[in-house]
């Protein structure tokens, strides 16, 4: 399992994944610096104000979309000239292959989150923030955003195994991501929509009494439930996929 994970990482390292990972802090800088930070009254912590703005765009569009690109990249080698055949002809079970690809993706998303955190600091320096850094809520939102992508990553891995072309799995991603723009404005629908969860879990203006800005029940039912659905779906599909 570990060796499988290492081999996955090795393959991926040789593709242009680094550029994709570094898109995250770039986007962070872009929205943090271009987006302006003076929209909030002075009594709000400067960091929190900037984060509120940055996290919205980041979690709404970038994070869900980039998971799809990462997932497709992780399956890219296998889709080229009989790669699935070659991989599955090795002494490995399909379940382990699926697991190791999933774990690798989760780790890559964590890297994306941490790089984004770095960009938050830089934004603060650029704007010359003097308020104290709200470490706790920042960590909460970084980790929360990460956890919220678990189901999204599972679905995107499924789609990336299913479709050979990046464009196809990306379209599925887009079709689910765009409605989030409306979902987050809807009290009724929003909390149940898996693609809206990164926005809620990174919303530093949310309910700070909760561990992750959203109620535990919502985390377990919506994030957990959709994770199980997508993960098992993808897992079973991969078991049956003829290569």
């Amino acid at each position: 399992m570990i060796s499988l994970l290492q081999s996955e990482w090795y393959k991926v390292r040789k593709s242009n994944i680094i550029y994709i990972l570094f898109a995250a802090p770039l986007v962070g800088l872009l929205i943090g610096i271009v987006g302006g930070s003076s929209v909030f009254p002075v009594e709000v912590n400067q960091w929190a104000g900037a984060l509120l703005m940055m996290n919205l765009t980041y979690a709404l569009l970038f994070l869900p979309l980039v998971t799809g690109v990462l997932a497709a990249t992780v399956c890219r080698y296998e889709h080229q000239a009989g790669g699935w055949k070659q991989l599955l002809a090795l002494p490995v079970t399909r379940g382990k292959v699926f697991m190791s690809k999933y774990l690798l993706l989760i780790m890559l998303v964590l890297v994306v989150q941490v790089l984004y955190l770095g960009s938050i600091f830089v934004v603060g320096i650029v704007h010359g923030f003097t308020d104290s850094f709200p470490m706790e809520i920042v960590w909460k939102s970084i980790l929360g955003g990460w956890v919220a992508t678990f189901p999204l990553v599972a679905l995107q891995l499924w789609m990336s195994i299913l479709f050979k072309s990046f464009a196809a799995s990306f379209s599925v991603n887009v079709i689910f991501t765009l409605p989030t723009i409306l979902a987050i404005n809807s009290e009724k629908f929003g909390p149940y929509y898996p693609w809206a969860q990164p926005v809620f879990m990174m919303n530093v203006g949310g309910d700070t009494s909760e561990f992750f800005f959203i109620p535990w029940e919502q985390l377990i039912t919506v994030v957990g439930g959709s994770f199980l659905l997508f993960f098992i779906g993808g897992f079973l599909y991969f078991q049956r996929k003829s290569v």
């Binding site: 242009n16 994709i20 898109a23 986007v27 979309l65 980039v66 497709a72 890219r76 464009a167 990306f170």
Partner: peptide
């Protein structure tokens, strides 16, 4: 194709 798609994002 990850490159054009990331650019697209």
């Amino acid at each position: 194709q990850g490159i054009p798609i990331t650019l697209g994002i």
